[in-house]
Amino acid sequence: MPVSMRIGNQDLTVDVSSLGAEMQALRTSDGGSWLWTGDAAFWTGRSPILFPIVGKAPDDKIAIDGTAYPMAQHGFARRSEFTLAASTATMCRFELAASDATLAVYPFNFLMAVEHAVEGRALTVSAEVSNRDQKTMPFGLGFHSAFTWPLPGAAGRAHTITLDNQGEPELVRLAGGLINPAPLPSPFQAGRLVLDHAMFAQDAMIFPQGAGDGLRYSADGGPTLHFHFENLPNLALWTKPGAPFLCIEPWHGTAAEAGASGKLSERPSTTLLAPGAMARFAFTVEIGQ
């Protein structure tokens, strides 16, 4: 059975499950609840970690060294039981190592460590992937956290995404769960996007490049979540139309492109990790007043 860890300080409380090393709750000391609850009426996820792929693969198969392996959307980490490796009052670290089950679908010896840590009103979630194999290891990794929409105390107010770099990144959409690489005009104007559920009638909005390494998710006259991304060049925004959450998804890797090769190493933004090397990916979210 999965175990749950609670970490926190005088400002924040965070619950993390050993199943997928997935955050289950993010609360402030004033009683505000900032993370989606996982209501099955809309979506059971809350904050899954995506590995070793982000998004879908053609026919739900990836090709590695000429062999096809079954791989469900967003990979297997989110449905895997992690082991608690370390914890303090304000930090917990869960690890997932290669096993017979993972080797059957992803033939690499890896170690993945996911850490949640709080400091003040900020939470940092990091993932470190180590290649313990003798060959280069391709993978994608992404975060898929769902935050409340509306934010606490901000019902009825307009909600906005504002990019720190004031960019207007090109938009791509999904076709059958795969990336349609034809770029569309950016919905951002000088880095600002006023959210509307109609934007998600065609599934996620994906920005393969140019969104920068930080953004603010805020309500007019209300609270703000300020995000900083580390080694996560791709961004997606997603909800189900009418659902009371917004997924803010920084990735290193995307779904395969429609009509493209099923080779894992050829997916957009795939990391190719050398033997013995480690790659780190992280986001920090600070809850403003």
Rank of each mutant, 00 (worst) to 15 (best):
M91G: 10
F76T: 11
I179R: 10
S218R: 11
G176V: 15
L237I: 08
N234Y: 09
F51W: 05
G221Q: 10
T44A: 12
G66A: 01
M1T: 13
A198L: 06
N9Q: 12
E257T: 12
V285H: 04
N109C: 07
D60W: 14
E170I: 13
V105Y: 09
S218C: 11
L111D: 13
S126K: 04
M112P: 07
G214W: 01
P150T: 04
V285R: 01
Q202Y: 02
I49Q: 14
E249T: 12
G66L: 03
A256Q: 12
T254Y: 10
S126V: 08
E257C: 13
G262P: 07
A127C: 12
A101W: 09
V105F: 07
M278W: 01
W34M: 08
A256Y: 14
D59W: 00
V14E: 03
L264N: 07
D133V: 09
S29G: 04
K56Q: 07
T83R: 06
P275Q: 13
F245I: 07
A77I: 02
A256K: 10
W34F: 12
N180H: 12
F94L: 15
T160V: 14
L163F: 10
G177N: 00
M112T: 14
S261V: 08
G210D: 00
F143G: 05
I49N: 11
M278K: 10
A260Y: 08
L84S: 10
F108P: 04
A258K: 03
F110G: 10
T28M: 05
A277M: 04
T88E: 05
A40G: 10
K240E: 15
F76A: 09
T37I: 06
G210W: 02
P150W: 09
H197I: 04
D133L: 02
M91D: 13
A41Y: 01
M137R: 01
N234A: 12
G45D: 05
E81M: 13
Q209Y: 06
D196E: 15
A182G: 04
D164R: 14
A258H: 03
N9E: 08
D213N: 14
L19T: 08
I287H: 06
S126R: 04
S265I: 02
L184Q: 07
